[in-house]
Design a protein around this nucleic acid. Structure first.
Lengths: 217, 217
DNA sequence: TGGGCAATACTCCTGTTAGGAGTAACCAAC
DNA sequence: GTTGGTTACTCCTAACAGGAGTATTGCCCA
């Protein structure tokens, strides 16, 4: 494959496969796209990546004029399409996340149980806020106002958005689980009781309800 | 707060608050810690960050000798403890993730429905593999083999690990949801039917079973 | 008609970060 | 004594964050 292309560049090729874009259009699009939720990158990257694609021969450029303004338009070419197709068929890097509030919970030795409660409250508040934002974002799709050009594009968006929603559900569900863990832990008195309770919860994590999945998962 | 410290440095302060570490010890610890799952950073960072902490006066260093080998030991100091405590009380950056396989699904215009099925299979396989890895990791806690020094540390780990598990559950659950979406979509024949089906699914996403959460979430 | 503000269309800038590879001394086992 | 793995780091380029900065254009309003 194109060893000289990073995932971000390949993602831009994916967008160029849809239609030609200026870099500025890419930045505007990314502000409201769910692609930014699943592959977040700084806006400056959206200027850098198309330039690299053009430099390495995966896209072509053309200077267009709108009114008295000029803009650089990037278009994918055959080499770019081939690189994109190759990338699509390759193994992908795994799921990864980072969460500062959870990091504080994990490192919470400097605090007492009030610290833990404070962090749990932060995590819950953040999941509620993110849910409200997501619900507002989904409204356009539920009402049909969103202008996706084809049903295929709509179902792609739906698949991605439902993934994002499942993660949000998980975070909200976890807030309840965490509150239960904390309550039960606080009700213990001896170290031995506490350790035993922790092991019971792990046993439950390992053998809890299998989530609804398809097939042999 | 310590405006000159990044989250990674503050996380290292959190570990130094537990005990003094060498940077090499930090890299070994991170290989098996759930902290790496929630705040993934390259090993070279674990050499860089303590040096910066020492340079800026948040930690002290001491050269120890083990056999004929020397190593640098970092210890937190009062300034570091204060910076850590301040950080714990501040607002935290939101949850964020990146997922290359989902990105490919989102950009799947170059493919046909077989491409979509292929990506869905990849996403399911990855979640199954990650689940197996996680279950193996949890085994040490369920059996009590893990040597956490205190019950408080155990429950912190449990809270973090249960978060990670909920995310994994969500990914596995989503694979089933995605298969259902794909099946129902494929059974549609007209663009209008497809769009209507997509809108129905969004309505369900918006008004689906509220996940079990605590309180006013 | 001119002024002011927002949009357009970028570049700039420092420091963080990835992602291991590379380096070299030490240590233990054979 | 030698060999391979461990220990304990540094190195290196390019990607990346995170906006701020720059300058022109365009539109709206008085």
């Amino acid at each position: 494959m194109a060893q000289d292309l990073k995932t971000t560049e390949l993602a831009i090729l994916g967008l160029l496969a849809r239609r030609p874009w200026s870099a500025y259009e890419l930045t505007q699009y990314m502000r409201t796209s769910n692609i930014r939720a699943i592959w977040p990158r700084a806006e400056s990257r959206l200027y850098e990546a198309p330039k690299k694609l053009a430099r390495l021969g995966y896209a072509s450029t053309e200077i267009a004029t709108v009114g008295k303004r000029s803009r650089t338009i990037y278009s994918i070419n055959q080499k770019g399409l081939e690189a994109l197709t190759t990338w699509m068929g390759e193994d992908s890097r795994p799921f990864g996340f980072e969460y500062e509030a959870l990091l504080k919970l994990a490192l919470g030795d400097v605090g007492d149980s009030r610290h833990r409660l404070s962090q749990l409250a932060t995590l819950e508040r953040q999941s509620d806020e993110d849910w409200a934002t997501l619900a507002a974002f989904f409204q356009q799709f539920a009402s049909g106002e969103s202008e996706e050009p084809s049903a295929d594009r709509q179902v792609q968006n739906l698949l991605v958005n439902s993934f994002i929603r499942e993660l949000l559900d998980a975070r909200r569900r976890w807030s309840g689980v965490a509150a239960a863990i904390n309550a039960e832990y606080s009700a213990c008195t001896t170290e031995a009781e506490k350790s035993a309770m922790v092991r019971r919860f792990y046993a439950a994590l390992l053998h809890g309800d299998a989530p609804q999945g398809d097939g042999d998962g």
